[in-house]
């Protein structure tokens, strides 16, 4: 940092290599070490485990863990329970994603500009998003139990078997719960995006005689397209990573595995049954599926 170092040719070279304030590396170092230890290394380790016959041993005991190529993936892909888990996620996404996009866009539009009590509405909308899922799952458990409030209100229309113990309704109920819990966050994203839709576009459409519905389709929807892509991708990621909800709401993916999810299986296989290798393979498979779905969502939204 001395002034002479910056004037000599070797000083210039050194400055070019280390930058003008090399101490920055030192300040950023704890964060970089953290990311490497807690994200990069485990990520590589996950891939390594998935391609090896990996099992837990007593501490200090070294047992060979041979490379097995794609064996773990073959085992996982031919396992009916794993395939069911991915199908369950499919059911979840088909319900959750369209509901999320439509409801959050509509509510954000309703909340945009010049609404009285806007702050109060916003708080009501995103308090569920900020609250621990364990708390809210406790409430939904009671509301949707066989003799819970929802069924009392529905009376003779109440489904039998009830919501959380019916194999055809368990996953849809979870999808409904997650839509409800996360919606406020997506409303916020859309509210921010709506600030960037030029007011003049709405006004000129109005002058041209477009009604509110036509303006929504012709101005608002295209105006927030990039946010829609983000919402789609985030909703897919959230849905693919379900754990707490099936674990608690349907008592570990019940009834009869109707609401088992890949992450629940990762926990059961990897930690309860001590097969980290197949668990890691499920994890990688999940990431690939999520990646493909996100790409597809991106493509579909862009073409319109």
């Amino acid at each position: 940092m001395s002034t002479s170092a910056t004037t000599t040719p070797s000083g210039t070279a050194r400055r070019r290599w280390w930058g003008r304030q090399p101490i920055g590396s030192l300040l950023a170092l704890p964060y970089v070490v953290f990311v490497v230890a807690v994200f990069a290394y485990p990520l590589g380790f996950a891939v390594w485990i998935a391609f090896h016959d990996y099992f837990f041993t007593a501490p200090g005991v070294e047992v060979p863990k041979p490379f097995v190529g794609l064996d773990n993936f073959a085992a996982v892909l031919t396992d009916p329970q794993v395939l069911d888990a991915f199908r369950n996620i499919g059911v979840f996404l088909v319900i959750n994603v369209p509901l999320t996009v439509v409801l959050s866009m509509v509510l954000a539009t309703a909340l945009d500009r010049g609404v009285r009590w806007a702050a109060a509405y916003r708080v009501a909308f995103y308090v569920p998003y900020l609250t621990a899922s364990v708390s809210l799952v406790g409430v939904w458990l009671l509301l949707f139990s066989s003799r819970g409030l929802v069924n009392t209100v529905l009376g003779p229309l109440a489904p039998d078997p009830s919501w959380l113990v019916s194999s055809s309704l368990a996953m849809p109920t979870i999808a409904l719960y997650v839509t409800w819990k996360q919606l406020g966050f997506y409303i916020l994203l859309y509210l921010a995006a709506l600030q960037n839709v030029p007011r003049e576009l709405h006004e000129s459409a109005e002058t041209d005689g477009a009604n509110a519905w036509q303006r929504f389709w012709a101005v608002t929807v295209p105006g927030v397209r990039t946010t829609t892509v983000l919402v789609l991708v985030l909703a897919i990621i959230t849905g693919a990573n379900l754990f707490t909800e099936p674990y608690l709401l349907t008592n570990g993916g019940g009834p009869d595995g109707a609401s088992v999810t890949p992450v629940l299986l990762i926990y059961q296989r990897g930690i309860q049954q001590q097969n980290p290798d197949t668990a890691a393979a499920i994890g990688l498979l999940l990431v690939v599926v999520v990646g493909l779905l996100s790409l597809a969502a991106n493509r579909i939204t862009r073409e319109r």
Binding site: Y41, A46, I266, P276
Partner: peptide, 17 residues
């Protein structure tokens, strides 16, 4: 990149580690 790695994927290796 960190923002894109789902925690659930890291669950098993982190647990072992």
């Amino acid at each position: 990149l960190v923002q894109m790695v789902p925690f659930q994927l890291l669950m098993i290796p982190l647990y072992v580690q």
